[in-house]
Design a protein around this nucleic acid. Structure first.
Lengths: 152, 152
DNA sequence: TGCAAAATCACCCGAAAGTATTACCGGAAA
DNA sequence: TTTCCGGTAATACTTTCGGGTGATTTTGCA
């Protein structure tokens, strides 16, 4: 990258500044500034240079980035709980919860820890689930649960 | 949010500006500005207000937004074997077969009978599968297998 | 307010799952 | 030819799961 390209903004600002000063000098000469008009004159200059500063800041500063994370679900946004089947199986809220965690591959112990209950409780729930779903193993329960769209 | 809080920056800027103007007026009166010094005086004001503009811009500017979309992988309804993942996991044909039967909810004993091999063989295969898939249980293996579209 | 269902927990026991190690065979690759 | 890998299998052991039973506490609802 050349010197010119690297310092483009600064050079442009310098040129602009120079032009402004010329303009001001010209204005000053044209309408010889009376003392009582000095305040207004200074006010105008203050405004112009404030604007210049703002412009400069916008040009020179690298934009601050704020990262916004959007989670996008690719497939299977089409899961809708099969109310009919869910009702037919008559699984309680807790049982459904346990079934879901089973489907994630958690052991009874892990499920117990996650739900802050004892291992025995989870065993009771799972036994209930197997009975209601008429299956013998957790793998079958999960398989059936997914097939019937009771769990994602 | 109150009016004061909402417009804090603007009010602060207004106060700062007022103070500056007082200061300038005072300076002007103190060292009665001679005509030949007017340029220097204006230059100083220009510099000050340029700085003020820059400061203002920094304060007021909202950070640009950067959007990051994270794709969350989930189940797909239409099954097509994911060759890439299947190859990466490096499961043998027999292991894949066992994994599939696992996914159907069969016990090791049932899988053994179905494939006409011993229970121990199935255990060996399943251990291999778990190691390759880096999981601990058959349920996790099935879950991962479905998620990676290695099994329907 | 009282009852039925749900949720909780415990204990026992056998079955199934999983771990670790070893071993043998046959085909493919080095 | 030797080595490596997949498939098979066994032994021995540990952990987890699931069945059965009983009991207490919560809770939602009539």
């Amino acid at each position: 990258m050349s010197f010119l390209a690297r310092n483009k903004q600064i050079i442009l600002y310098g040129i602009a500044l120079a032009l402004f000063l010329f303009l001001l000098k010209w204005l000053e000469m044209r309408y010889v500034v009376a003392d009582e008009e000095l305040d207004v004159y200074i006010g105008i200059i203050a405004l112009i240079f404030t604007g210049l500063g703002i412009w400069l800041a916008y040009k020179l500063r690298k934009p601050a980035l704020q990262t916004v994370v959007i989670e996008k679900e690719v497939y299977r946004s089409d899961f809708t709980l099969n109310e009919t089947e869910a009702k037919r199986l008559n699984l309680s809220k807790r049982e459904l919860e346990v079934l879901q965690l089973m489907a994630e591959g958690l052991s009874n112990q892990e499920i117990a820890e996650k739900l802050f209950v004892s291992l025995n409780t989870i065993k009771t729930h799972s036994a209930q689930i197997f009975e209601k779903m008429e299956v013998k193993r957790r793998t079958q329960a999960v398989e059936m649960g997914k097939r019937l769209s009771i769990i994602p």
